[in-house]
């Protein structure tokens, strides 16, 4: 079972129609590679929420996926307004979403908390008027080979 995979995906801000395309593709690819279900779920959710965040708030962004036998790394870098108060953004329920975004079913303020609960290691940095950088690490089970 080959567990090595690396790929980068560019995402356009505002592309709500395509929202989730990248995440579904990543999930199916990793599923075909044989990653365990619980890891797949975490990768899928973390990638999807990141994708939605880029589309909802940024001008554009890149999601980089890096898989090997011991861990999955998800690196998300966007260009956009950035996050003013990271502590607030990490709080479940806090949202800066517009009414339009809410009516689509997003913007409940759970994006970053959801990503965090899927991560074994999570780092977030942001600069106002530049963008946000997320780094997620999900550990593979010890017996994966």
């Amino acid at each position: 079972m080959n567990l090595n995979y690396e790929n980068s995906f560019e995402i356009q801000g505002g592309s709500f129609l395509k929202a989730g395309e990248v995440s579904v593709f990543v999930k199916k690819t990793l599923q075909r590679m044989g990653l365990p279900n619980d890891i797949l779920r975490k990768v899928a959710i973390a990638t999807y929420e990141s994708e939605i965040n880029i589309i909802s708030y940024a001008r554009c962004g890149v999601i980089h996926i890096d898989v090997n036998a011991t861990r999955v790394l998800i690196d998300v870098q966007d260009e956009g307004p950035g996050i003013e108060d990271i502590q607030l953004a990490m709080r479940a329920g806090y949202s800066t979403a517009s009414e339009e975004i809410r009516e689509m079913g997003f913007g409940a303020g759970m994006g970053i908390p959801n990503i965090m609960s899927c991560s074994d290691d999570f780092q977030i940095t942001s600069e106002v008027n530049k963008g946000t950088h997320l780094k997620v690490m999900i550990r593979m089970p010890a017996n994966t080979n």
């Binding site: 989730g20 995440s23 999930k27 779920r41 999807y48 689509m104 079913g105």
Partner: peptide, 17 residues
């Protein structure tokens, strides 16, 4: 069970099986 009709419900469903 949802009232949402946009394509994201399908992608979400796919993500979560």
């Amino acid at each position: 069970l949802t009232g949402l009709t946009n394509p994201q419900i399908v992608r979400t469903a796919s993500i979560l099986d």
